[in-house]
């Protein structure tokens, strides 16, 4: 990553992979024991690990194991996906497995925020549309799906459905400002003034102005 302008994510195209179920939590997406690491590298292979393997490491039935979905990059889920812990390891694991966008009925907030920080759109659709898209993907694992973040649509087969992308998320992705560090660092002086205005912040806790 660099301090330069971040990438623009107007749309994501590719093939889909369905993971069904409501309230799929981050402990399922990446079990805590795989978080004993100091970098995110290599997390991809542990995505949904306990759903994918039994105690003897034999594969269980799970879309992430199925050969026809190995190149998929658009994950299709149901309600309250990503609830639970704030671990960014969850979207990191999905991203490193190959996921570039998630379409679902609803998302837990911290999870959606973590996805945005990685440039992964989380777009919401009705229950009906989520289920229809999952069924479509099952039958047509090789068919192209287009997630248009700017226009707020998902197109698959001969169908285009309306989706919702949170306003700030859409702006951030479409204008390429989802990498907020540089953006916010530019306001360092205003931040310092704000800090000084707060009664609980003591002067020596506010950094001195540096000319850089």
């Amino acid at each position: 990553m660099s301090d330069g302008p971040a990438d623009i994510v107007e749309y994501v195209s590719g093939t889909g992979i369905p993971v069904r179920g409501n309230d799929i939590d981050t402990d399922q997406i990446i079990p805590a024991r795989f978080m004993k690491v100091v970098t995110f590298d290599g997390l991809g292979e542990f995505a949904f690990f306990d759903q994918r393997f039994d105690d003897e490491d034999n594969q269980k039935e799970h879309p992430f194991n199925e050969p026809q979905f190995q190149n998929a990059n658009i994950l299709v889920v149901n309600n309250n996906f990503g609830c639970g812990s704030s671990r960014e390891h969850a979207p990191q694991a999905l991203m490193r497995w190959g996921i570039d966008a998630v379409v679902g009925e609803s998302f837990a907030e911290i999870f959606a925020g973590n996805c945005l920080a990685l440039g992964i759109p989380t777009v919401t659709v009705s229950q009906e549309d989520a289920e229809a898209l999952q069924a479509f993907v099952d039958e047509n694992p090789d068919a192209e799906i287009d997630v248009d973040v700017a226009a707020e649509t998902v197109t698959y087969g001969d169908k285009t459905v309306d989706v919702t992308v949170d306003d700030a998320q859409r702006k951030a992705l479409v204008e390429g400002v989802w990498d907020t560090t540089a953006l916010m660092k530019a306001n360092a002086n205003a931040v310092r003034e704000k800090a000084k205005s707060l009664p609980y912040i003591q002067d020596h806790e506010v950094p001195a102005v540096k000319d850089d």
Binding site: S86, R87, N114, A117, L118, T180, T181, V191
Partner: peptide, 20 residues
Amino acid sequence: FGIGTSQIRDVLATGTVAME
């Protein structure tokens, strides 16, 4: 409130987060 790792980076680097 809880934040993800990229936001931790923001807070470390700037003392702020972007929020709605």
